[in-house]
Computed example of a mutant assay.
Amino acid sequence: MTTLMPSPQLAQLNVARLRFPLDDPRLAPFVEMLDPVNAAADAAPGFVWRLVEDGEADATGLRPLGDDVIVNLSVWESQETLWDFAYRSGHLEAMRGRRDWFHRHVASHLVLWWIPAGHLPTVAEAAERLTDLRTHGPSPRAFTFASPHTATEAAAHARGGESAGV
């Protein structure tokens, strides 16, 4: 009898460097969107998990990549479900204001990678994938929406000698 393995899931990290402290009135529109956007993500088809600070509803208090850098780390069933949430939901409204709230990105700010079902990526793992993308460009190990790779490609890449989560 063959046992089916659960389908790999897609992890994503995006980072943003704040223009102002979170309690600054100029960031109020962003802060006001956090709870509704996070609730929408939690209820979105394909959503699996997102990083939150202990005892909080989001991860904005965590600053593992710098005092002025906020991180968003989540897991989704597929690239399509993440895309639908990011670009076909209320999340898009939050993205429209990003230039008012965050510094312009000079390097990649979003990285995607495949993980085994049930694995919860750490911030250190996510930061390593972002560094990989920034250093080597898109690959099956670390990619973007504009340069996607399948879970099958990631698994084949991992079998080729690199250690990866799939």
Results as ranks from 00 to 15, higher is better:
Gly46Tyr: 02
Arg134Thr: 07
His119Leu: 12
Tyr87Ser: 13
Leu112Glu: 05
Arg96Thr: 13
Pro64Leu: 12
Leu110Glu: 01
Ala57Asn: 12
Pro64Thr: 14
Ala39Tyr: 03
Ala43Thr: 11
Leu130Pro: 03
Asn38Thr: 07
Leu133Asn: 07
Trp113Arg: 07
Val75Gly: 00
Ala44His: 03
Ala126Asp: 02
Phe30Tyr: 05
Ala28Trp: 10
Gly97Met: 11
Leu133Gly: 10
His91Ser: 04
Ala59Lys: 04
Ala57Trp: 03
Ala43Leu: 05
Ala142Asn: 02
Phe85Thr: 08
Trp114Val: 06
Glu53Gln: 14
Pro121Asn: 03
Asp58Arg: 09
Glu93Lys: 11
Val123Tyr: 12
Val48His: 10
Trp76Pro: 12
Ala43Tyr: 01
Val111Lys: 14
Ile70His: 12
Gly46Pro: 05
Ala127His: 00
Arg88His: 14
Asp68Trp: 11
Ser139Asp: 06
Ala57Ser: 15
Asn38Ala: 13
Asp84Tyr: 05
Pro140Cys: 01
His105Lys: 15
Ala28Lys: 13
His109Met: 14
Val106His: 01
Gly66Arg: 04
Asp68Ser: 13
Asp100Ser: 14
Glu56Ala: 14
His103Thr: 08
Arg141His: 10
Gly137Gln: 06
Ala40Arg: 07
Met33Gly: 14
Arg141Met: 02
Pro140Gly: 06
Asp84Leu: 07
